[in-house]
Simulated scan of single mutants.
Amino acid sequence: MLPILLSSQIAFSADVGDFWETPQHGGNVFNRLPASTELYSDLSAYNASWVRIAYDKWPSESRDFLLGDADDYQGLVPADLKTLKGEIQRAGDAGLKVVISPLSLPAYRWAQNNNGKFDGRLFSDKANWEKAAAFWKDLASELKDSPHVAAYNIINEPAPEKQSSLKEHASASEMKDWYEKVKGSSRDLPAFYEHIVAAIREVDSNTPIMVDAGWYAAADSFNYWEKTLSDDKVLYSFHMYEPYEVTSAPNLRRDVPLTYPGNAPFGDNQSMRWDKAQVAEYLNQPVEWAKSVGLPTNKLVAGEFGCARKVDNCAAYLMDVIAALDANQLHWAFYSFREDAWDAMNYELGTKGNVGWKYWQAMEEGKPDPTKYSSSGLFSIIQQKL
């Protein structure tokens, strides 16, 4: 029987398959080492249907995994490509669809692999787009026949606005005014995506492509996009950690941590009330944008969301975010699943559990995480919605 689609949805073309036609729920795996088969099998057993994988932390003989050198891309690193393909196969064998999500591109090295410094070259000179396009053309050529790859996520959390005059969480009118000034320039994110999509389509006409909103994929950053991209197999992704001053791990180091629900700084507002209603209102922005440009809601993805698990009322926050996403029948993936270098959003540990010294020792020695995991009351909030 064919799936029944709501009026706000539209089927992807038949040659792409029907995976994204109905809401898909999964998790993010951004680990320092390729994951064990058990990790993917357990994620699948929790009823996740997809996993978003970033490989940039993995060890490589080269400066940058898969890229070789983000400063001078000359082609995919064969050994790294083999490792990536093996990871995709393990996830696929576990019953998960895979979204590949680089944290770095040529001329855009992820800050944590760049001595903590933001690398803005990709969006400061349009000439740098060519190497990024070459990389994606090469990678799509290698992955196009995989039955497990559900989408290519061009770049995780781009920020072409960062070194410009546009502030984070500016008003919609301020964003639109800014975009009018930068349209056609190296900071034109939709134009950048059009360029990369065209390169991918030279070698792969079928695989869906996922694009993150600007300003680190903020849910309000589609507000300046005048239209969708020209390719009809594109998914539009945003992330949700707002209010970041509450949900992030640094909040736990405050003398008096901020709580949810409660007041927190956001944009120009130094004390904004965040609760279930405000979360829903904020997450309705990409939905309203989609409606304004004629985009079906089944092409919207919350590619990441979460909160530091020890934050007061993280459970309520997760429930409220998922409720808002599910109310609009959006695809989503929680952050993160069994991260092996950072336990702050490892919800299987609950609100008070700790990984133990062997976890940190394994990280120092470059060995796999030895922790044995199981569900918790906190994780069950996500588990029951997967």
Rank of each mutant, 00 (worst) to 15 (best):
P3Y: 13
I4N: 14
S8N: 15
S13M: 15
G17N: 09
E21H: 15
N28P: 09
P34V: 09
T37L: 12
W50Y: 15
R52K: 13
A54Y: 10
D56R: 05
W58Q: 06
S62L: 05
R63F: 05
A70Q: 01
G75H: 07
G75C: 08
V77D: 09
V77N: 05
A79Q: 08
D80T: 04
K82L: 08
K85H: 07
G92R: 06
I100P: 02
P106A: 04
A111P: 01
N115T: 14
G116N: 12
R121L: 04
W129H: 00
A132F: 00
A133K: 02
A134K: 07
A134T: 12
L139C: 03
D145T: 13
E157Y: 03
Q163K: 11
Q163C: 02
S164K: 03
L166G: 00
H169L: 08
S171N: 02
S171Q: 01
M175W: 06
Y179R: 11
L189I: 00
P190C: 04
P190M: 02
F192R: 04
E202K: 13
D204V: 01
P208H: 06
I209H: 05
M210C: 13
M210D: 10
M210K: 10
Y216L: 08
Y216V: 03
S221M: 09
K227F: 00
S230Q: 15
P243S: 08
S248I: 04
P250W: 13
L252H: 14
R253S: 15
R254V: 05
L258Y: 07
Y260I: 07
F266T: 10
G267P: 05
A277V: 06
E281R: 10
Y282M: 05
P286W: 04
V287R: 01
K299C: 05
L300V: 04
L300D: 00
F305C: 09
G306T: 07
C307R: 01
K310L: 04
A316N: 08
L318F: 12
D320Y: 07
I322K: 10
N328F: 08
N328D: 14
W332H: 07
E339Y: 13
G356C: 07
Y359N: 02
E364V: 14
P370R: 07
T371I: 10
K372N: 05
L378N: 04
F379P: 01
S380Q: 11
S380H: 06
I381Q: 05
